[in-house]
Design a protein around this nucleic acid. Structure first.
Lengths: 315, 315
DNA sequence: CTTGACCCTGAAATCGATTTCATTTACGCT
DNA sequence: AGCGTAAATGAAATCGATTTCAGGGTCAAG
């Protein structure tokens, strides 16, 4: 393929001049035109690898998410993509499958590919980001907060509280909670919101930890239903587990008015879901947009202290 | 960060030797050990950008899909990822949003980032791949076939026929078809299957073209229902349009036994969907796996003539 | 006419790896 | 001991861009 040298030769200038033309650095109109013509004729595209090697940074930002099959994260990805594209960055998506090891591998790739920056919905809050930060690569945590880096989340406590309060208002009293992995800040915050709103404060017997996935939600719901005194309602801390919980309920013939159910985050393809489910909508796409904007500001040199953005819980 | 020169200096060898140690080329045990120790101490990670520049190829493969919010494609992505990771490749996902221009931009990135290869579910069958093929980058088309490159698809004609026949067997006679964009090979093939199975062969009045998305399916269904003599069943050529069609039916109070509906491809989160929908399951994940395997064989130097793999329509 | 300031330009260094090529070293065999 | 072959090693070239540095040219002010 055509290189900058080929273009230079054809245009009768030095490679440096070709580079300048493509980077908007002052070049006389005559040469500039000759270079453009030559580049056109050779259908020259600058080699990004060479450019990245020299500039020590590419125009690619990585978005690392734990579950590509969760519509919440794909919506978020759309948000990131829209903003990034508009600023000339490409987005590559990496799926960790909630696996810390895969996550670490992708973080390695980010470093060694000299990617510009990274938006991360981490598998846990003790990710090792030293390699990134040491090289000045900006990191933005999204959906799941991380110590020491810019963070964009929703108000998880308020969301959990609102969802639970809505169940209380519907007259339910024995309200269970299915939340995410033990120790995860997001999972804990949502459960905290539930604790605040639930009437019987000794109700941790109705608290279950699962894995933010359909199967986990299903298992937890089954477990709750098998209690001697099962709950009369349940607050589920994410959309996929809510799907699992709903499946468990449907299997037992339980539906809306008999048992209450509230989901943190829109149910996927909600047009297909049963009536009577309380939903706390999550602004997934706007989370992605905000994270991307934050990252791009950092890439442009913004060096304020760490910032945390908390979006309201409605689309 | 530590470079290969730093490691070489610390280990008292030449950079070439360090490179050889990391590439499994014969180096005496003594030096090899010294290099490893030095690399460890400096926490050295080879710079992939430099390596890519020199080798003219990275260890990244691009997966370009038209709609990241479609569970079919995310399942496919999982398949690709599993196989690729196992062979030491990283996968980056690019979402074109069914937009040919975005697609072209991503193809440019693939070329100029020297990515190893590319798996593509194209927006149309006249994509320009000359830049790719000229540089010997293998391309595999998945789900949507392309001229001149390896292809992995399902048997779209058979699937359309089976789905429609199942509706016929249920006693429906005025069976409509909602398929994808006019001229798209996948959309046409599925509609061809429908034509083969439908009893009244003059029934193209019941054929609608939409965009493979929820809204399009909804609009087409509404349109069909507004006909003077509406169909009594519908075959929908992809999962998202089926969701839209179902929504339209539910809005009119029409459900399973009254009107027949068959979907090509599993409904997303099917546990939530109404009963009575005929589903032709699509082996999305296996499509991804097969495509990745094919691509990796090419990357390893396989240069057989073009191959086409057609999977059966069941998971 | 001289000097200084400023703008363009090209030669060459640089980014960090891989790889070729030439050389050295080691070893086996007669 | 002498010779040939193979294996291990390092110096230097290479990939394709960007960027520094040093001139060369133009122009205005003195």
């Amino acid at each position: 393929m055509a290189t900058i040298y080929d273009v230079a030769a054809l245009a009768g200038v030095s490679p440096a001049t070709v580079s300048r033309v493509f980077n908007g650095i002052a070049v006389s109109a005559v040469r500039s035109e000759r270079v453009r013509a030559a580049a056109e004729r050779l259908s020259f595209t600058p080699n990004r690898t060479a450019r990245t090697l020299r500039k020590q940074s590419s125009e690619v930002i990585a978005l690392i998410i734990p579950d590509i099959e969760n519509p919440f994260f794909t919506a978020l990805a759309r948000g990131v993509e829209d903003v990034a594209q508009a600023s000339g960055y490409s987005v590559v998506l990496c799926n960790t499958d909630e696996d810390a090891e895969k996550e670490a591998r992708y973080l390695d790739v980010v470093v060694s590919e000299n990617m510009a920056g990274i938006i991360l919905a981490a598998t846990s809050d003790h990710v090792d980001l030293t390699d990134l930060t040491r090289r000045g690569r900006p990191v933005v945590a999204v959906d799941r907060s991380l110590p020491d880096v810019d963070t964009v989340t929703v108000d998880n406590v308020a969301g959990g509280r609102d969802a639970t309060q809505s169940l209380v208002a519907q007259g339910f009293r024995r309200i269970a909670c299915i939340t995410g992995p033990c120790g995860g800040p997001t999972a804990e915050a949502r459960a905290d919101g539930w604790r605040e709103a639930v009437i019987d404060s000794s109700s941790d017997r109705y608290l279950r930890h699962a894995d933010f996935r359909v199967e986990g939600g299903h298992a937890a719901m089954v477990n709750l239903l098998n209690l001697p005194e099962p709950p009369d309602a349940v607050f589920v801390a994410n959309n996929l587990m809510a799907v699992g919980a709903l499946r468990a309920l449907i299997e037992r013939g339980l539906t809306a008015p008999v048992i209450g159910i509230a989901s943190f985050g829109d149910l996927p393809f909600a047009t297909l879901s049963p009536r009577g489910v309380t939903v706390i909508p999550l602004p997934a796409r706007r989370l992605g947009e905000a994270a991307a904007r934050l990252l791009i500001e950092r890439l442009r040199g913004d060096d304020q202290p760490r910032r945390t953005i908390m979006l309201e819980n409605h689309s």
